[in-house]
Amino acid sequence: MKKIVVFTLLFLNLYSQDIVSKNKRCFLCHGKEDYKIIENGKVKSLYVSSAEYYQSVHKDMLCTNCHYDVSTIPHLRKPKKIHCLQCHYAGNVVGAPVKEMPEKYKESVHGRAKEKGKKAPDCIDCHTTHYIRYHSDTLSTIHKRNIPLTCGKCHMKIVEDYSSSIHGEALKKGILETAVCSDCHQEHDILPPEDPRSTLNPKNVIHTCERCHADVTIMKKYGVPVKQVEAFKESFHGVALEYGVVRAANCVSCHGFHDILPSSDPRSPIHPKNLAKTCGKCHPGASENVAKGKYHIIAEEKEAGIVYYVYNFFKWFTLLVILGLVIHIILDLTGRAMKKVKKKAE
């Protein structure tokens, strides 16, 4: 038994040694930090950090596994452009993991833009080329903490807005339960909000926010009220949205999206001073009166204030009145029945 273990370890060691030594030939040039060429009038770095490469998920791969058209050193021609789908397709023999991600990507805004020949990110733009790491790895570009940076490479203005938002602030504090880009927009299947399948379609926004904001364990931890979503569904906006009024306000209509801030922040659209303007987007008559009252109220709960008492008044009033009326009816009916029985007996 011992022998076998030793042998396997030795074999693996030899194998990996083999990879390192084989790849060393590539890193001879590409491992130099200042290794670059001028292509189309632009300086292009050809440097690949070997240290980082050997920490990536592809550390057990030869350079030539992907760059299959490189057989001699130095290679005379520029190697062909490679694509992840070279290996990551269903039924591949090298054992590359296949998920539905590429299929989802094709449908996404990025995939469709790419198909039309527009400038849009492909796999490598988010996952990097040589240094791909698992999303659980804190150094990965797709680790939750780094996602805003990854998306921000292109969406610069948005990330700027995001980083000053309550979600962005939380992320800076290292709270990973906060929302980053992909929590709302999805990752591979990012769809435009007009698409009914999109998580950001007006009808679906509530369900997107609900994933966290209706979760007691998360919200309790940070002192965020948890019943807002439930209350919204009870409100007229919520009911209208549910049954076909797409223009009815959803969460983001009032709270904003990338730059969401708590109502205590004077920059927030839901700060009492800004409410008239925010409501006024749809309700032209809105004045500062809209700030006089509570929002997201559930009538059954005491926090609803005066509405709670109105609700209770009607609850008991209805119960008493209907009970009285029903008793009157029952007495009437039983009285009639009794008289009938008596008559028959006579």
Partner: peptide, 13 residues
Amino acid sequence: NFFLGVVPKFILD
């Protein structure tokens, strides 16, 4: 839309 400008929000609630 008219009353939002005239009465406090809680009246509408």
